[in-house]
Design a protein around this nucleic acid. Structure first.
Length: 211
DNA sequence: CAAGAGATCATCT
DNA sequence: GATGATCTCTTGA
């Protein structure tokens, strides 16, 4: 680590390495695994909101029946067909948002759904405990993490290589054997595709979503 | 603890 | 007009 980077981290100016376009422009299953342990950052007006990614799901290609893209390119899904490294945010059940990162090369529809975060709270936010509002469960699901990070459709299409919403590497690796692969959640309509073990999570994390 | 229902609306048929 | 890449609350054992 070079001198200025060390100084920046000591003073909190810089927290880590923002992931580049090249990170996202890879096989979706690899991106989904590699996103575990990375930090999702949303710079809101009231300061940055941050969480450590502990659960993801891959949606891969035009034939994956679980993927929105399997019904072809529409207004909503056009982003999934676009270049990698952009946010795909949609409203689900009329009241929750889901946040995805677009992956692979332009023209091939694929994305990773971010399903759970461990909240990283600033010092003055470190209240909220007790009962069902356990801190570690604050962002333990795709809808809950969007509520926690204040992500909504206004951020649909945002460039994750920009400075509003991005993902960074803060240096610590997740060991491959600590990662669990499982079936994806909430896609019973997807036929044989629902059997794919395309959900990944950090087995030891208390913030993984239920079921 | 598990199972079930209801909330609520953009998107696509 | 139907439906969902969800969450929370209620009921009952």
């Amino acid at each position: 680590m070079d001198f200025w980077r060390r100084i920046n981290i000591i003073y909190g100016v810089m927290q880590g390495n923002k992931l580049s376009r090249a990170f996202y422009e890879r096989a979706t299953l690899e991106v989904a695994r590699d996103l575990l342990g990375k930090f999702l950052v949303h710079g809101t007006g009231e300061g940055p909101r941050v969480g450590r990614i502990v659960e993801t799901e891959a949606y891969v290609g035009p034939d994956d029946r679980a993927s929105h893209a399997s019904r072809g390119k529409t207004n909503r899904t056009a982003l999934m067909f676009g270049p990698p490294g952009y946010a795909y945010v949609y409203l689900i059940y009329g009241m929750y948002h889901c946040f995805n990162v677009v992956t692979e090369t332009e023209g091939y529809p694929a994305a990773v759904l971010i399903r759970a975060l461990e909240p990283i709270l600033a010092r003055d936010q470190a209240r909220m405990r007790d009962g069902k509002n356990r801190l570690e469960k604050l962002a333990s699901g795709p809808g809950k993490l969007c509520r926690y990070l204040q992500i909504d459709r206004q951020l649909n299409g945002v460039d994750l290589c920009g400075s509003v919403l991005y993902i960074e590497d803060r240096g610590r690796r997740i060991q491959p054997e600590a990662i669990v692969a499982a079936k994806r959640i909430g896609i019973d309509y997807a036929g044989e595709w629902k059997e794919k073990l395309w959900r990944f999570y950090v087995g030891s994390s208390p913030s993984v979503s239920q079921r």
